[in-house]
């Protein structure tokens, strides 16, 4: 293992690391919001919304994320970073929507009935009664989606997104130390995903206790 590959190119690795974190964070927040909206659309008591939600999930979920990222990059004049982050968001949102929908469906029907019969609107009942309960059930699958998202962010490298993978490729071109470079790239990803994995586990335990 040649550590000089790492030390000589630390700036590039850190630059890529930073971009990966930023892209992942933005995609994480946006896909969570978008995914929640789509989940609510899928189960709202309005056929048109159900339809839109279902079409979104079935289309996006069944297209390779690589194709989506290429599409957002080539069809619009976004930078690689922007296109990649949008592509990731759109793709991850379909999985998050499904996880959240499953969580909402697992909240007993009586909760919605109690909330509605007290005069709360459907939206209020969702927001104050159903979603806070669903989120606890949804945390583990959601955590998995977030970890996948961080790993999938490596696709930014293919559209010159300036992320960890992209910087790794540049280091390769310079040093020809392919194996060493990718090992270091992998380690940087682990620095993100392992704490995320533990964080989800911790949150899961804490939420379980609050019940």
């Amino acid at each position: 293992m040649d550590f000089s590959v790492l030390t000589n190119n630390m700036d590039a690795f850190l630059e890529g690391f930073k971009t990966t974190i930023i892209a992942s964070l933005i995609a994480l927040v946006c896909s969570f919001i978008l995914g929640t909206l789509i989940a609510v659309m899928r189960i709202a008591p309005l056929k048109a919304l159900n339809w839109i939600g279902t079409v979104y999930v079935e289309f996006i979920r069944n297209i390779p994320v690589l194709v989506i990222v290429f599409f957002t990059y080539l069809a619009f004049t976004f930078s690689g970073m922007t296109a990649g982050t949008i592509g990731l968001t759109v793709y991850t949102a379909s999985f998050i929507a499904e996880a959240i929908r499953a969580g909402i469906m697992s909240v007993p029907k009586g909760q919605m009935e109690a909330a509605r019969s007290s005069g709360l609107s459907y939206g209020q009942a969702m927001r104050f009664v159903i979603l806070p309960q669903a989120i606890k059930i949804v945390i583990p699958p959601l955590g998995n989606q977030f970890i996948n998202l961080v790993k999938n962010s490596s696709l930014l490298g293919i559209v010159a997104g300036g992320d960890l993978m992209y910087q790794g490729d540049l280091v390769n071109a310079k040093t020809f130390a392919y194996v060493d470079t990718y090992v270091f790239v992998a380690l940087f990803y682990l620095v993100l995903t392992i704490p995320l994995s533990f964080g989800v586990g911790y949150l899961e335990k804490r939420l379980a206790r609050s019940n």
Partner: peptide, 17 residues
């Protein structure tokens, strides 16, 4: 309309959170 109609269920349906 529902504001004026209180309802109590067999299984309570209190909000557990």
């Amino acid at each position: 309309l529902r504001r004026n109609i209180g309802m109590v269920f067999q299984h309570f349906h209190l909000y557990p959170h």
